[in-house]
Simulated assay, not measured.
Amino acid sequence: MTYAIQAEGLTKRFGDTQALDGIDLTLPEGTVLGVLGPNGAGKTTAVRILATLQRPDGGRALVAGHDVVRDANAVRRAIGLTGQYASVDEMLTGRENLVLFGRLLNLRRADAAARAAELLRQFDLGEAADRRIKTYSGGMRRRLDLAASLVGRPSVIFLDEPTTGLDPSKRDDVWNLVRRLTEEGTSVLLTTQYLEEADALADAITVIDRGRVIADGTATELKQVVGGRFLRVQPTHAGDLGAVRGVLERHSSAGVESPGRGVLTMPIEGEQAFARIVADLAAHDLPVTELSMQLPSLDEVFFSLIGRSGEPADTQEALA
């Protein structure tokens, strides 16, 4: 397997705060690695080191086959980066910003203009292309910033909370773009506060807390860490709720919960248990609108692993 990113034992300290404490990260080519963690966990520090914006205190990292310390220029030629805040020039138009990025990447003027026009179309900014950025909404600026990171067709892209400030429809547009990029062979490291975003996009997930990797694997593997499957049942008739609860309680020693109006849940193991419950409900003539086995949500996984709510640190690492 060929890796777009290989990081081993990365450390970084800011004063008395150990921002990174020996983290390892791997990103196979053409895949998406989601990096999750509370505020101050070290996510943005890791991205800054991998993008050559900061030097690690210890450890080693290769990006696109190049050492981030010894061959930083080669790394920069291979990557695109979208940070948490827009990096575009407010006094220039959207088109001028993208052309400028193209020229800085040594594209010929005609090629830079063509690439700018292509990205403006992709990000639904064509009508605003010749307006100054200071007139853009926050979501429009965010989309232009994303477009700017793609001007040079990088092989590795860092997306640091890329959909912050976007409405759900524009978030879906970004998700579709990420999927298209990986289909074309681009590798993506994604940090996000939207857990459904990691669930939807990431081939693998690494969870960081207090500068350390505390879990990694696919979304399904992480969900299985928290616990087994649970059964979710919604009776068709509200008056049957008590009777359905009675049926479920006969099949569970862990108890039945009611997370919402008219819905019951309980832990369940295996298809045989599921089949017995289905048969028991049918035998008691209790129709249901929903009857499904589900894994825990990624939200439940996250809070189970972290065990606390993330609070900003007192250092610049609060940006992470």
Rank of each mutant, 00 (worst) to 15 (best):
T182W: 03
R153I: 03
T220D: 14
A148K: 10
T164N: 06
G165Y: 07
L159I: 09
T186V: 15
V213S: 10
K223M: 09
R210K: 14
T218G: 02
L120N: 05
R212D: 09
M140L: 13
T163F: 02
A129Q: 13
K170C: 06
L177I: 15
E127F: 10
P168Y: 06
G165F: 08
A202H: 00
E184H: 13
A148Q: 02
A148W: 03
D111T: 12
D203F: 12
D167G: 04
D160F: 08
R141K: 15
I157R: 06
T186Y: 04
E161W: 05
V188M: 12
V99F: 03
N106M: 11
E118V: 02
V99Q: 02
D145C: 10
P168L: 09
R132P: 14
E96S: 07
R131T: 12
Y136K: 00
K170H: 14
R131S: 04
R179Q: 11
A219Y: 02
W175T: 05
N106W: 13
L201Y: 05
F230T: 14
Q122G: 10
D172G: 12
R212W: 02
T192D: 11
L107E: 09
P162E: 08
L100I: 03
R210F: 06
R109V: 06
D199Q: 14
D145S: 02
R143K: 14
E221C: 11
A110W: 08
D199Y: 10
L159R: 05
T186P: 00
R141H: 07
R131Q: 15
D199H: 01
T191A: 08
E221L: 04
E184R: 15
I205A: 04
L146R: 04
D199I: 08
I205S: 06
P162F: 09
L190R: 01
R180L: 11
N97K: 09
R171I: 12
K223S: 01
L125C: 05
A198K: 08
R95L: 04
I133S: 05
D209P: 07
R142Y: 05
D172H: 14
K170S: 15
T164V: 15
A198D: 10
T206G: 05
T135Q: 15
G94W: 00
A129S: 11
L159V: 02
G185D: 03
L201H: 00
F158T: 08
G217L: 01
L166F: 11
L166N: 08
G126C: 10
T191L: 08
M140I: 04
V188A: 08
V151W: 01
G227P: 07
L146G: 04
L231A: 10
R143Q: 02
L125Q: 03
Q224C: 09
S149C: 07
R103M: 11
E196W: 14
G227K: 00
R115P: 00
